[in-house]
């Protein structure tokens, strides 16, 4: 596909990548040697050489736990929900923003929807408590509203059922604006003449958004999707832990690998086991991404990551 670029000038061009490659070598690849500890019984004083090997023992810990299956399911379900929801929200917002013509309104809108990205998980957790439980755990804005409509109120913090949706809502709020910025940049670079054809056909704006803009956002969405798939075994620890914390009643639907590992090991601080879980998450992620990339290449070479 790159007949245009002769090999010599491609090597020349490769110089552009040298600083980044140096960065990765020093700050990413060199420290990866630390992963060996996943196969060791770690001991502070003995260090790496002294710490005895223990094979796959560190990995066994997680799978021996009776909760492994539920936690894996939670992790995947929540991540799929988050990924799909934030992507959809980002695309929708970007397309809608693109429709707005008032310069001032558009700028104001962009600044506002980007703002939640900066709100720390702790503050999100506090605001959720105001919404769902109110001071000292009874009432809350949502329950007041439910009562206002004559509906039964819900004791949100002891009811695991709705939490995947609550967390998804939080993610949309948090990342919708962030994602939309990425898509907006992509929309910006769509050449004008693409729309001209639509114009002549007399398509409505909705049709143009649907038939022209949306398909042209596919490559960007595909990249985000593939990147997201690789991280599907990680939880969003910061947000989930800040909101759910040690509230065991919500674990049936909210406990993910990261929170489970953090909780069960925080007292013992077993480096070997944490490293093993991390490695497991990485390897699974790697396999998933490779699969995703292969599938993607097969269906659409143009949008392929590699």
């Amino acid at each position: 596909m790159s007949t245009r670029t002769p090999v010599r000038s491609s090597l020349w061009l490769g110089l552009l990548a040298v600083p980044a490659v140096a960065f990765f070598l020093v700050f990413s690849y060199a420290p990866m040697a630390g992963l060996v500890v996943a196969f060791k019984e770690f001991d502070i004083s003995k260090g790496l050489f002294g710490s005895p090997w223990n094979g796959l023992d560190n990995f066994r810990y997680f799978f021996a736990s009776g909760d492994a299956q539920r936690i894996l399911v939670n992790t995947i379900v929540l991540n799929v929900l988050f990924l799909a929801a934030t992507l959809a929200a980002g695309v929708t917002l970007a397309i809608m923003l693109n429709e707005i013509r008032g310069r001032f309104f558009k700028r104001a809108a962009q600044s506002t929807i980007f703002f939640p990205y900066f709100v720390s998980p702790v503050v999100i957790a506090i605001m959720l408590q105001v919404l769902l439980s109110g001071p000292s755990g009874s009432g809350g804005v949502v329950n007041d509203a439910l009562a206002g409509f004559g509906l039964p109120t819900v004791s949100w913090y002891t009811e695991p059922g709705p939490w995947p949706w609550i967390l998804t809502f939080v993610k949309i709020w948090q990342l919708g604006g962030y994602m939309s910025v990425i898509f907006l940049a992509a929309i910006t670079s769509i050449p004008e003449d693409v729309y001209e054809a639509g114009q002549i056909d007399g398509a409505s704006r909705a049709q143009m958004a649907l038939r022209i803009t949306l398909p042209l956002l596919k490559p960007t969405a595909a990249v985000l999707l593939v990147l997201g798939v690789g991280r599907i075994f990680y939880g969003d620890f910061g947000t989930i832990y800040a909101i759910v914390g040690d509230n065991g009643t919500l674990f049936p639907t909210t406990d993910v690998i990261d929170t489970y590992v953090f909780r069960s090991l925080r007292q013992i601080g077993d480096f070997g086991t944490t490293a093993a879980i991390g490695l497991f998450q990485s390897v699974v992620g790697f396999v998933l991404v490779s699969t995703a990339v292969l599938i993607q290449r097969r269906y659409s070479k143009e949008t392929s990551l590699l």
């Binding site: 770690f42 050489f49 879980i277």
Partner: peptide, 26 residues
């Protein structure tokens, strides 16, 4: 409020030292 990021990362263990040929205790 222990940082999960830090906590997990700490699990990465101890070994650049090994790579660069130093004792694990740094």
């Amino acid at each position: 409020g222990l940082s999960r990021r830090g906590f997990l990362a700490a699990g990465g263990g101890l070994s650049l030292a090994a790579m660069l040929g130093l004792s694990g205790c740094g």
